[in-house]
Write a protein that binds this DNA or RNA. Structure first.
Lengths: 111, 111
DNA sequence: GCATCATGCAACTAAATGGTTGCATGATGC
DNA sequence: GCATCATGCAACCATTTAGTTGCATGATGC
């Protein structure tokens, strides 16, 4: 397997499982670090709500933050995304292998 | 973009965001269909709990089920997994592009 | 026909989640 | 120094989620 068998991935996927957070991640994936109020933008949410979402992303390791003067800037962090990607690749590959075996079986059987 | 910009992926990731469900998916990714009690196995959970998890997976489209006599057999369904994978690939690629641009900038600047 | 097996449905509980509001605090800029 | 801006913290609320228990029902096998 390219990754651990999925243990500990729960929190990562859970963090991705919210539209607001997916949106934040999408904006941050351009590599630029942004402050909370910047990320708030024109969203209908409160600053506190956005803050909470950012904390969820951060504790899932999808984002990193550091204080810069009076503001805290959040930046995308790619490692965990790769883990999630690796897991999905594994599952997909397992599936394709199973399909291939089934295919082979059918072919053989068709003699 | 290879996929829609992430809208509607929330439910998929949310379904993946639970260790029990990840385990069920992993077992089902070998392509074989299994009944609820089979999937229950020696898990410490109740049959009803597992049933609920399976329903979550099903309504996220990650799994399909059909009644076979007195039992309902659940089977892996790969399409949605691919969507999720495509999204993560997009995010990853965006990040790498950003890195590349930054790299280019630094190189240029170093004249 | 009858015991049994696999499932479905409903009601209920405890905890987590997503959101709000109000107030406190530390930097910034003039 | 002082107004202001960006954030943090805490309490609170409503909804969802993960899980349970108990009972009902439809197939299966002999």
């Amino acid at each position: 397997m390219s990754s651990n068998s999925g243990a500990s991935l729960g929190p990562i996927f859970a963090a991705l499982g919210d539209a607001t957070r997916l949106g934040l991640l999408a904006r941050l994936s351009d590599g630029r670090a942004r402050s909370i109020t910047t990320l708030l933008g024109d969203s209908p949410l409160t600053r506190q709500a956005v803050t909470k979402h950012l904390r969820v992303l951060e504790s899932a390791g999808l984002v990193r933050s550091l204080r810069r003067g009076r503001e805290r800037r959040f930046a995308f962090s790619p490692e965990r995304i790769s883990e999630a990607r690796a897991y999905l690749d594994d599952v997909g590959r397992q599936w394709e292998d199973a399909l291939a075996r089934l295919q082979a079986f059918v072919e053989t059987d068709k003699t």
